[in-house]
Amino acid sequence: MSGFSPDFAGAEVRVSPNFTQRRGTDRPDMVILHYTGMPTGAEAEAWLCDPASEVSSHYLVHEDGRVVQMVRESDRAWHAGKSSWRGITDVNSWSVGIEIVNPGHTLGYTAFPKCQIEAVIALCGNIIVRHGIVPERILAHSDVAPGRKVDPGEKFPWRALARGGVGHFVEPAHVKNGPVLRPGDNGAEVEKLQSMLSLYGYGVEITGSFDRETEIVVAAFQRHFRPRKVDGVADPSTIETLRRLLLALRHKPA
């Protein structure tokens, strides 16, 4: 017995008991992308449907492109944990969670197969259209939980998603030598960096001091938008890429 009809026509259904009602909204306005970080897709699927795990996601995308839905989009899956974006701290209530099968950083992080990414693009595109989700709210788990989570990681092909009409993307600025902002720095330039990160959506306090929290958020930003070098140091490439993203938002068609 399937339990419900899938929201995405191409999905199989395997019901997870790990869900509640959404709080404060009846529909999502974000999509959060994860990797499973487990040895196999079968183990991940079983874990997401195990009451003892107390975790779930709306969808799981296997390496061969097969999509499994475990929680209805109208319900609140338990995928984001402690997280925030643009002041929203109950990200689970405002998002659709998609787990993408990949062993992750601790188990031999691998490239994502082309057929898997094509399935992710099709799934996200369908969700975006049905819920009217804007590109800049297609996010990584690491964006909403910097430091605590690093998935789907620097190997995830955000450029390919953007070419498929999914997500907010600008070409990263080239890495080159120049002045940097790093832990221990203080002043107006640090405050400006923190303000830009906060304006984009990251949960960073604007203090003018490049503290550990700022370093973690910079690394999360790099992992998504400038993955060539993820070190938590705000070099010219990182800052310029962030400026390009904010400029693209301001010039977005109505």
Rank of each mutant, 00 (worst) to 15 (best):
L123R: 03
G104H: 03
F169N: 06
I98P: 07
A160G: 04
S53T: 07
S84D: 11
D50K: 03
A220H: 04
G10T: 07
F19P: 10
D143V: 11
G203T: 10
P28I: 00
W85L: 05
S195E: 15
S53K: 00
E154F: 07
A220Y: 02
K192N: 11
H105P: 11
R212N: 13
P157H: 08
K176M: 12
A160N: 10
K82L: 13
R14W: 01
E99I: 07
A162H: 14
A140F: 15
K229I: 12
D64E: 02
L242S: 07
D185V: 09
A42I: 09
G125E: 11
T214V: 09
K155W: 10
G165T: 10
Y109C: 09
A219C: 07
F4P: 13
S5A: 15
T110R: 15
A11N: 06
L139F: 03
G203A: 13
R250N: 09
Q222L: 08
T106E: 14
Q69I: 00
T214G: 05
V13Y: 00
A248V: 10
L33H: 02
E12D: 15
L193W: 06
P17M: 05
K114M: 09
I117G: 08
F169G: 05
L123S: 06
A162D: 06
T214F: 00
V144Y: 06
G81L: 04
T110H: 10
A188S: 14
E240K: 10
S57H: 10
S74R: 14
V166I: 12
H141V: 09
V67D: 02
G132C: 03
H141T: 11
G208F: 00
S93M: 03
L107D: 07
G201N: 11
P236M: 00
P152M: 10
V67G: 01
H251G: 11
V101P: 02
V31A: 01
D7Y: 06
R130W: 05
S209P: 07
E136V: 05
F112V: 01
L193T: 12
L123D: 07
M38T: 09
V144C: 08
P253K: 11
Y200Q: 08
G147A: 06
H251L: 15
S56R: 04
R23N: 14
R226V: 14
V166L: 05
M1A: 15
E240G: 04
L60R: 01
E45K: 06
A122P: 14
L181Y: 04
F112R: 05
G153I: 03
K176T: 14
I239L: 09
A188N: 12
G184R: 10
H251S: 14
P103K: 01
T110A: 15
G203K: 09
N92K: 02
C115S: 13
C49E: 06
